[in-house]
Design a protein around this nucleic acid. Structure first.
Lengths: 245, 245, 245, 245
DNA sequence: CATGAATGAGTGTTCATTCAT
DNA sequence: CATGAATGAACACTCATTCAT
């Protein structure tokens, strides 16, 4: 962004976010976002021109500015919309999932499926937004954060439930989970490998699970054998006949 | 990239990569890369101007084009140089590390330390290069790939050694490892959390290890008790007295 | 002006006002100013496009920005150049003119001739610059001011010499003089009346003179009549026969 | 003016200047003009947006076009309204003023007072309208002209009355008078000097008067001396004894 | 080699104006 | 009438890149 440096965040002229916003306008806004998504997704931010977006949305350049205050605002608005929708979708599923492990799996699955089903958005999110120094200051980012925080919540639930280790910083868990998912997704996006993203759900889930679940260690198996002394060590069990008196 | 760029990979006018390249030239090239690193690292690709780089390197705009064919070439060259150097450094350590686990740990440590000690490059690598659609086609990317492939090599070594599970796609392991590391690094870079990156080495290592190491499961313990039949299941051991004949 | 609000006064890249500035550059700068003068003079500031100027100067749009930091800077630079040149010209004449009245006349004549001989600049100065809220803050304006202050100097000289009234605020004299000249010039410019501007020199001069010169009152005429007593009052002369002894 | 303006003087859609124009509409038109005056006065023509005016007038952009055919039309309409009102005001005073000198003074006073009391309009008139190449072709300009012609009328009256010199082109007198007044006003407007504009009435008046009034020359003093022939020339009086018969 | 100087090509954003409702 | 919404038409300014010296 260069030009017109003057302004800062300036409400677009005709985007009265006053709830009732009539349907045509709402539809048009959606249209623009779809168009923008398409172009941003294919070309990236800098390579995308407003004119290309307006063409894709079949409206005029100027009209875009009725709905969004700048090219960047438009970019961030895509994230806001998609993330909010996805967040709502996931949240609506949550009540049906019981247990932290199942929730963890669900989160992974939801992410992978979402990315897989929204290739263009994925491109925007992983290639463009992640590199944006301004995105993190944006409104949209807050929603993203809310979403990713569910991983922390679920992890903590798992600790409560006694299924997850309690010796890891939850932020690290989130880092691992998202890092894994996003890196995998990026490979899928750019290299086409794996071919099927959501099919990786269980692979990802099981690996992360290994990292976070409480060890099913031998302490969990109390071995008693009549007439024998049983000593359980880390990875050795010593069974000796009881000494006769 | 817009402008003039008739582009097409075009050898820079006066950069005879003919081995003997005199020292002054070599030094100057290094200079330019340092300057570019500084500016790219602070502003990102699009916000960086050639003129800013030339100022930082204390040479003229035109001279940059004696050494690099384009702004993008310069960007990628940074990656090439840094990655190569880091790769060499790591490779020089390898012989002193024995065992796949130790090597895995070393790779994680090397990455985190490198990122921590090269903040500007980290910024370029994670924020700029990762989002570049052209980077993957570049010469520099091949070197990166070579580097990241060591993770796969090490993982395979671990399988050979019997310390890593053999039921995971090595690419998934690489994805997890790099995804984890890079996500963590990005958080450090952008949010300052964790404050100390390389200090996370063991946390990261242990979590990844959990995911990939061979289960210290009961199969690893062959239990035989004279006079008894021992059946080992996943987490149950059934010990019955042998039937007398 | 819209765009790029950021900047303020930013030295154009390649306008090293370092004295020696080679001739080609100097010539080119002159060229641009001539081109700009032509277009500004014909169309006014807002109606003028940089592209029209660059066409008139037979160089590229971008080159203009090598010499001037903005469209407005270019506009003001015209004034700076012309005023400075004219100021120098007038100053070189001054030594040859003696007496405040003659100097006043010369100033009027110089103004009218200059305007008449530089119709385009006159258009820019009277129609465009005079309405510019920024011009008064510009460097160029200072030179203008220096020029117009000569009127005050001359007026004060006239007071010293005893040819001008000493009961008028010199600033008012300047206002009257310049106001008269400029209004007349504007009529000439826009309506073509009077047809010949500099021919009005004496008309203007004599009218202004009437306003500022010391009354040629009866004190200037010493009346003596033999055999009579003559008393001269403001507008009465009393002549009485001398008393006979 | 750029943009859409297919222009061509085109009657505003819904401004049936058919006399009966209802009061609400009349009021609204006034409203718009007041709003426009405020914004034009503060920002100048190009910097002023229709939207800013509509905001100031608390109506919609489109409504402005119901009353005025273009931004420029609106600008000129301000002048028309103000000038007409001022003209009417002055004309209503005229009958009470007798003598060309007094009228001349009144005109000067009226101008200065009007400018002083209508700072915003003054700004528009002196900074914006005076530089407009189109204004002179406008309807509004005719009214202005009618107004300024009173100076000529009064001057001619003065000649008739024998109080003004008859050897000056009346247009020159108008030029001097208006030039003086406007230059002084511009200084007041932009530099705040003089602090009090209308207080300059007498200064201005007396200076202009000096320029135009008939010399209180010796012709005004009829000298007769018994027994002598008195010849009065410009600044010489020749008194000769009458020839004895 | 190094560079000063020139420029082609590009684009986000603004805003006066229109018109369907 | 009043207006919300849409848009066509413009343009100042930037910068990567080239090339003569």
């Amino acid at each position: 962004m260069k030009k017109n440096g003057k302004n800062g965040k300036k409400e677009p002229k005709a985007n009265p976010r006053n709830g009732k916003k009539d349907l045509k306008a709402q539809q048009r806004e959606k249209n623009i976002i779809e168009g923008a998504l398409k172009v941003f997704g294919e070309k990236g931010f800098e390579e995308t021109t407003i004119s290309a977006i307006s063409k894709a949305a079949k409206i005029s350049d100027a009209t875009i500015y009725e709905y969004f205050s700048s090219k960047e605002d438009l970019l961030f608005s895509i994230a806001k919309l998609y993330t909010q929708e996805e967040f709502d979708r996931v949240m609506s599923i949550v009540p049906y999932i019981h247990g932290a492990k199942a929730k963890l799996r669900m989160i992974i699955q939801a992410h992978l499926e979402f990315y897989e089903n929204n290739r263009l958005y994925t491109s925007v999110a992983l290639l463009t937004l992640k590199g944006s120094r301004n995105f993190m200051k944006s409104e949209a980012y807050k929603i993203i954060k809310k979403t990713t925080n569910t991983i922390i919540t679920v992890y903590n639930e798992g600790i409560e439930e006694g299924v997850f280790r309690d010796d890891i910083d939850p932020y690290i868990v989130r880092n691992m989970t998202l890092g894994f998912i996003e890196h995998l997704t990026a490979q899928w996006l750019l290299l086409g490998r794996p071919a099927n993203l959501s099919a990786q759900t269980d692979n990802v889930y099981s690996m992360i699970l290994k990292s976070v679940e409480k060890d099913v260690d031998q302490n969990a198996m109390k071995i008693t054998i009549e007439g024998f002394d049983v000593q359980q060590k880390k990875d050795t069990i010593i069974i000796k006949a009881k000494k006769k008196k």
